[in-house]
Design a protein around this nucleic acid. Sequence first.
DNA 1: GGACACATGTAACAAGTTACATGATTAA
DNA 2: TTAATCATGTAACTTGTTACATGTGTCC
Lengths: 175, 175
Amino acid sequence: MTSQDVILGLLMHHSLSGYDMKHKMETILSYFNNASFGTIYPTLSKMEKEELITKQSVIQEGRPNKNVYSITEKGREQFKTYMYSPVEDNEFKSDAMTRLFFGEFVEKDVIVGVLEEYLQRTKGHMERLSKLYVECQPEMSHSQEICIQIGINNSESQIRTLTQGIVRLKNLAEK
Amino acid sequence: MTSQDVILGLLMHHSLSGYDMKHKMETILSYFNNASFGTIYPTLSKMEKEELITKQSVIQEGRPNKNVYSITEKGREQFKTYMYSPVEDNEFKSDAMTRLFFGEFVEKDVIVGVLEEYLQRTKGHMERLSKLYVECQPEMSHSQEICIQIGINNSESQIRTLTQGIVRLKNLAEK
DNA sequence: GGACACATGTAACAAGTTACATGATTAA
DNA sequence: TTAATCATGTAACTTGTTACATGTGTCC
């Protein structure tokens, strides 16, 4: 799965500008994907050359002009090829968990701090997802609902585990 | 957090060869980290030049010789600097979830297939973690226990969500 | 005979990040 | 006036992956 596949997926519904795509990636796709402008714009240029998408320049008043991209028939085929290809493994990398793993080499307070920050971030993450779910549920597909439920339920589970972990570590420190 | 920080952490306890490190990353660190030989060996060379680690060649019989690396005082300081630095956000990328998100553009069976494979992989993942927990619990630190519990509990939660999702999608297909 | 574990290393390549460059409008 | 939103794009850099190259011993 590359950024190209995600862009093709986004264009299956509507035509979008690079800026719009970035916004979608930061909201509805953010919990299992990410891409910066430095990835999006060069990828769009490449895809246009390969005739997977076409560009239309839209002149706007009071705003910068924008390039709106649409998917071509060739692009739709490419997207199908992706959707039928073997599923790749998830990629996960956690700095917070790495610190927990090596926690024995620093003071307990530092680790409690890591846990508390991780908990706050997870709570924020879950709130954003829950809000998104409430807002977008009417227009969501069935598999999109499953997708966001995975995100919400995993966050909930993580909040529970972290909360318990903090209590246990703190008790240990007092004794 | 770079591979360097992880390598320093691994060397805080024992001296290790690059091959040993790869093994650790594939087992006890695998659920929040990963690195290939193509990353490990060049990083070790770089770290040796920077005097964060030292190399000792060990001649073995019936096996290839190996280079065993030990952390230096400078390396320990560098490791502490890492452990006290601001915690970076988790990185997560999921091909399976991307396909769920764009599931409306393919047949329901394809999505059920994605869900079932994702479920099987998650089950396998959880079994490996549970086994690891049972095997290593005696020598695990408190924060390491929290770390692996996060992994196990998140997997459990994901198994539940996926199982429910499969049932719901399948019922929908029958109607 | 074949696969796997042990063991190290490089080179080519892919992918993505960060920072820079530009610039108008709008709201606090 | 300061920040945010809208809007695109490039260049340098970092990081990591895959594949190749090499070779022995052990187990089935």
